[in-house]
Amino acid sequence: MNIKISNIAKLPSKYGDFKIQSFKDKDKEHLVIFKEPILDNTLLRIHSECLTGDALGSLKCDCQAQLHHALQLISKENGMVIYLRQEGRGIGLFNKVNAYELQDRGFNTIEANHQLGFETDLRDYKIVEYILNYYKIKKINLITNNPNKINSLKNFEILQRIPSITPTNKHNQNYLEIKKESLGHFL
């Protein structure tokens, strides 16, 4: 992997004072948000970019709520969020908007991806291993509901899985049900 690594900068936020560092892999720039000290048994959230949820507050998903939940936990206990730039389960923003339109017509998130010619989930977590090794982390307390994230960390000891259960609403109930029933998420 040919990874470029930025300097570390301060990031004061409504959840506390963090530090940030970027890891550039080919055409994607990922972000690590952390609170020191970074311990070998760190609290970790692997979060895939969701512009509509994270930045615009979309009620169609639980992405922003999970991100904020992780930042709240990390602000109290130290740890990190690895923010991966892989929008829409890896299909990109343009295709995600097209998938949203298909969802407006009654398709669920998986069916919409398939209608557009994509697999269910195209996300890749290889950079996570590089980042964890960079920070010399071998043991983690993983904040996730996603079994794929757990499976992607075979070279690390997961001390515990911390659920990220967030409130539902009428716009994301079906989305969360699909994540649970079809993708095996722990909800």
Rank of each mutant, 00 (worst) to 15 (best):
N172H: 00
G90Q: 04
Y130E: 05
H185C: 01
D104N: 13
V32M: 03
L102A: 04
I150S: 12
I110S: 07
K35I: 08
N7C: 09
D124P: 01
I91N: 02
N113C: 03
D25G: 01
D25C: 09
D104K: 14
R85I: 04
N2L: 13
N169T: 05
F156M: 02
L102I: 09
Q64L: 14
K28F: 08
C63T: 09
L116V: 00
N113E: 02
P147W: 11
G90Y: 05
Q66L: 04
A9R: 14
K10D: 15
E87P: 01
K60V: 08
H171M: 13
Q115D: 05
L84Y: 00
E129V: 06
I8Q: 11
G16V: 08
A99T: 07
E87T: 01
K10E: 13
N133H: 07
D54W: 08
G184H: 02
S75W: 08
D25I: 07
T52Y: 14
K76Y: 15
K60M: 11
A9Y: 15
D27H: 12
K35T: 07
K139Q: 15
P167N: 10
E101C: 13
F94E: 15
L187Y: 14
D27R: 13
H47C: 05
Q103E: 14
R89L: 08
I33V: 09
D17K: 15
I127S: 02
E49F: 02
S22N: 12
P12N: 11
L11A: 14
E29M: 12
R45W: 01
K4I: 10
G16M: 13
N141E: 04
Y83I: 01
N2G: 08
L142N: 06
N108T: 04
P147C: 10
F118W: 02
I127A: 01
L122C: 05
R45P: 01
D62Y: 07
Q173P: 06
K138H: 06
M80N: 00
T168F: 15
Q115F: 11
I110H: 05
Q86Y: 08
N2A: 13
N148F: 12
K76V: 12
A70S: 08
K24Y: 09
E177A: 15
I5T: 07
L51E: 09
K170N: 15
F156W: 03
